[in-house]
Design a protein around this nucleic acid. Sequence first.
DNA 1: TTATAATAATACCAAAAGGTATTATGTCAA
DNA 2: TTGACATAATACCTTTTGGTATTATTATAA
Lengths: 118, 118
Amino acid sequence: MSGASEPQGIQGAFRALSDPTRRGILMFLSEQDMTIGEVSERFEITRAAVKKHLTILEQGKLISVHARGRERINHLEPRALKSVSDWLRYFDQYWDNRLAKLQDVIERQEQNKSKSTK
Amino acid sequence: MSGASEPQGIQGAFRALSDPTRRGILMFLSEQDMTIGEVSERFEITRAAVKKHLTILEQGKLISVHARGRERINHLEPRALKSVSDWLRYFDQYWDNRLAKLQDVIERQEQNKSKSTK
DNA sequence: TTATAATAATACCAAAAGGTATTATGTCAA
DNA sequence: TTGACATAATACCTTTTGGTATTATTATAA
């Protein structure tokens, strides 16, 4: 009833991405890690509202948070974004078969590479 | 205040994708076009609830709807999914530089190809 | 040690989302 | 033309979301 055949955890990522403020936060965090205060400076909403967005991003595993003294550093976690990207990749075939095939080839190369590193 | 530097319309797509039922509907529609009734058979919620999801998918331009007699045919529109995929591609660099570079090359080939067809 | 700055935690509110139930409308087939 | 069926349109309810305001904590610096 809740996304049977989907990779676990992807719902949290999609949910987190559904808000434009949160997508903006991800963009900022891609440039550098930030405290809640630094993120808040870049938006016109209250710090508490920003904190809620950061919590949802953390629940979706799109960011991680580490304490540093009295501050909390928010850090981008790109792997969860990759899981969303992978979900979308299924539809590649519907907009461009050639691109999909090339990406398949690349994926296989990646797999072989990680096997040989083991 | 509402996603300043984002491509127009992407919010509707992200919103539509944030619900697991809607993602399931997209999967089914990728196999074949369906009426509301056919979609409803595949879920345990009422037809009216399915209709609401289809409306949100249509608003996000992820599907199109065409009347055929007394039925309404729902059809997958992959281009909007591509816009989401493109947004995510920005983050490729953070999880795998090699893959990102290869994709850049592919994109450029696509651009040249479409130029030469004009 | 104490004032201050950064963050957390509540409590609260309005609006949107997700759903059901019910009623209306339009179209096909006999 | 009329009955049945597919869909549309409302109305209504509950839960979640996005936000503010206010009140704790907690750690650093003087």
